[in-house]
Amino acid sequence: GLTEEQKQEIREAFDLFDTDGSGTIDAKELKVAMRALGFEPKKEEIKKMISEIDKDGSGTIDFEEFLTMMTA
């Protein structure tokens, strides 16, 4: 499992990506986040990433899903 410290770091990354503070990361926010990390993702790639992570089919990534992605 994760230490509380690791969870906190992932939470901070999540909050950075969640620019509108909605508690979820949408495609637009993910794209901005990827760019910040030096990637140039295409729209299809973003969609694919979200569909792989987005277990509940909401079209957005919540913290639990993000946590799973970061620790996979």
Score class of each variant (00 low, 15 high):
residue 34 M to Q: 01
residue 26 D to L: 09
residue 63 F to G: 00
residue 53 I to R: 05
residue 70 M to S: 01
residue 68 T to D: 05
residue 32 V to I: 12
residue 10 I to Q: 02
residue 14 F to R: 00
residue 43 K to C: 15
residue 48 K to A: 11
residue 32 V to F: 15
residue 42 K to I: 09
residue 69 M to L: 11
residue 37 L to P: 02
residue 13 A to G: 02
residue 44 E to F: 06
residue 41 P to N: 07
residue 6 Q to S: 06
residue 18 D to H: 03
residue 57 G to M: 10
residue 13 A to T: 13
residue 41 P to E: 04
residue 63 F to E: 00
residue 30 L to H: 00
residue 5 E to Q: 12
residue 25 I to E: 00
residue 71 T to M: 12
residue 24 T to D: 08
residue 41 P to T: 12
residue 34 M to L: 12
residue 31 K to C: 15
residue 20 D to H: 04
residue 54 D to L: 13
residue 57 G to H: 10
residue 70 M to K: 01
residue 39 F to Q: 03
residue 31 K to S: 13
residue 40 E to M: 14
residue 50 I to T: 03
residue 38 G to V: 01
residue 36 A to K: 11
residue 52 E to N: 11
residue 10 I to W: 14
residue 34 M to F: 11
residue 23 G to A: 03
residue 14 F to P: 00
residue 72 A to L: 15
residue 15 D to H: 09
residue 22 S to L: 03
residue 44 E to N: 07
residue 51 S to N: 09
residue 70 M to D: 00
residue 14 F to Y: 01
residue 8 Q to W: 11
residue 13 A to S: 04
residue 9 E to G: 12
residue 21 G to N: 07
residue 13 A to M: 14
residue 2 L to P: 05
residue 69 M to H: 04
residue 42 K to L: 13
residue 30 L to Y: 02
residue 43 K to S: 14
residue 29 E to T: 12
residue 47 K to C: 14
residue 60 T to S: 07
residue 39 F to C: 13
residue 59 G to Q: 05
residue 30 L to C: 05
residue 7 K to M: 11
residue 10 I to D: 00
residue 9 E to C: 15
residue 46 I to K: 01
residue 17 F to A: 15
residue 72 A to T: 08
residue 62 D to Q: 06
residue 18 D to K: 06
residue 28 K to L: 08
residue 34 M to G: 00
residue 42 K to T: 15
residue 14 F to T: 00
residue 49 M to I: 11
residue 70 M to C: 12
residue 25 I to M: 05
residue 20 D to G: 04
residue 58 S to C: 07
residue 62 D to V: 04
residue 3 T to W: 04
residue 58 S to A: 05
residue 1 G to S: 10
residue 61 I to K: 01
residue 25 I to A: 00
residue 57 G to K: 06
residue 51 S to W: 09
residue 6 Q to Y: 13
residue 4 E to V: 09
residue 30 L to R: 00
residue 67 L to S: 02
residue 36 A to T: 07
residue 9 E to I: 13
residue 31 K to N: 10
residue 68 T to W: 15
residue 60 T to I: 05
residue 10 I to P: 01
residue 41 P to K: 11
residue 6 Q to L: 11
residue 7 K to C: 11
residue 47 K to D: 15
residue 7 K to Q: 05
residue 50 I to Y: 05
residue 35 R to V: 06
residue 27 A to V: 14
residue 43 K to H: 11
residue 26 D to G: 08
residue 59 G to V: 04
residue 62 D to S: 15
residue 52 E to V: 12
residue 69 M to D: 00
residue 62 D to H: 08
residue 71 T to P: 02
residue 56 D to F: 08
residue 33 A to W: 12
residue 51 S to Q: 12
residue 16 L to P: 01
residue 61 I to V: 05
residue 50 I to K: 01
residue 42 K to M: 10
residue 30 L to V: 07
residue 4 E to L: 10
residue 55 K to P: 06
residue 38 G to C: 12
residue 38 G to P: 01
residue 47 K to P: 04
residue 51 S to C: 11
residue 47 K to R: 10
residue 8 Q to A: 10
residue 43 K to W: 14
residue 12 E to I: 13
residue 40 E to P: 03
residue 2 L to G: 03
residue 38 G to L: 02
residue 16 L to N: 06
residue 42 K to D: 14
residue 32 V to K: 15
residue 22 S to D: 09
residue 62 D to Y: 06
residue 56 D to I: 08
residue 12 E to N: 13
residue 52 E to P: 02
residue 14 F to D: 01
residue 28 K to H: 11
residue 35 R to I: 09
residue 34 M to N: 00
residue 39 F to Y: 10
residue 53 I to Q: 04
residue 61 I to A: 01
residue 46 I to Q: 02
residue 57 G to P: 05
residue 25 I to N: 00
residue 71 T to V: 12
residue 69 M to V: 06
residue 72 A to R: 15
residue 47 K to S: 12
residue 12 E to P: 01
residue 50 I to W: 08
residue 54 D to N: 09
residue 26 D to A: 08
residue 22 S to V: 03
residue 64 E to P: 04
residue 22 S to I: 02
residue 36 A to D: 02
residue 27 A to W: 12
residue 5 E to D: 09
residue 33 A to E: 00
residue 4 E to Y: 09
residue 48 K to N: 07
residue 58 S to W: 05
residue 53 I to P: 02
residue 2 L to I: 07
residue 31 K to Q: 14
residue 67 L to G: 00
residue 4 E to Q: 11
residue 55 K to Q: 09
residue 64 E to Y: 10
residue 1 G to D: 07
residue 55 K to H: 08
residue 8 Q to V: 07
residue 66 F to I: 03
residue 7 K to P: 02
residue 35 R to H: 06
residue 26 D to R: 08
residue 29 E to K: 12
residue 1 G to Q: 10
residue 39 F to T: 02
residue 54 D to C: 14
residue 40 E to W: 12
residue 43 K to A: 14
residue 40 E to T: 14
residue 12 E to F: 13
residue 63 F to A: 01
residue 36 A to Q: 09
residue 13 A to Y: 09
residue 33 A to N: 01
residue 53 I to W: 15
residue 51 S to D: 12
residue 10 I to R: 02
residue 20 D to T: 07
residue 61 I to E: 00
residue 36 A to C: 14
residue 33 A to K: 03
residue 47 K to A: 14
residue 43 K to M: 15
residue 7 K to W: 09
residue 49 M to Q: 03
residue 58 S to Y: 06
residue 63 F to C: 01
residue 55 K to L: 09
residue 71 T to Q: 10
residue 19 T to A: 08
residue 56 D to M: 09
residue 56 D to H: 09
residue 39 F to N: 02
residue 59 G to T: 05
residue 59 G to C: 07
residue 3 T to I: 03
residue 13 A to D: 01
residue 3 T to V: 03
